[in-house]
Design a protein around this nucleic acid. Sequence first.
DNA 1: GCCAACGTTGGC
DNA 2: GCCAACGTTGGC
Length: 157
Amino acid sequence: MAKRYWLMKSEPETYSIDDLERDGWTYWDGVRNYQARNFMRDEMRVGDEVLYYHSNASPPGVAGIAKVSKAGYPDFTAWDKRDSHFDPKTSKDDPTWMMVDLAFVEKFPGVVSLDTLKNTPELEGMLVIRRGQRLSVQPVEAAHFRVVRKLGRKAGR
DNA sequence: GCCAACGTTGGC
DNA sequence: GCCAACGTTGGC
C-alpha cells in the first residue's frame, strides 16, 4: 500500500518534538477518541510520515516530522490504574484503545504556525485548519504534507 | 483563564 | 433513541 500521511497533535508541555528527538522514538499512548483510535488501529502503517503538531502552544503549529515505526497495538496504559489515561472499562482480553510507535525524523528550524497553515492557499481543505476540528490523529493529503514540509524547512530563516 | 465546539454519558 | 449535562480539546 502506498505511503500515507498523518498529522498528530501533542501539547509540547507534555511531549514536544524536542522530547521525541532526544528519545529517538516513543509510543503514542493516551488517545481516548474512537475516530483517532480507528486510524491508528486500521490505517497507519510502518513508514507512514507524520506532521508533528504542537497544540496549546504559542504559536500552535507543525514543529517537525515523525514516522510510524510500529503499527497499531493495544495501549497498555489503559490498564494501569496509576496512569492518567487509565480506563476501567477496558480489559486485556478485549483492548479498546490502540497506539502506534513513532520515530523522530526531523525538527523544522521554525514552527509552521496554524496561522501560516490557514493563510497558505495550497493548504485549503486541510483538516487541522477547520474550525472546531479537535481530532488528535488525522489524515493528511500527500500534496499538503509536501507543502507543509517545504514551509517548515524554510521557517524561521 | 475563558469559552466555543465537540464527544460521551446516562436518565428517561 | 433522544437529549441535557458534563468533560475535554485547544485557540485565543
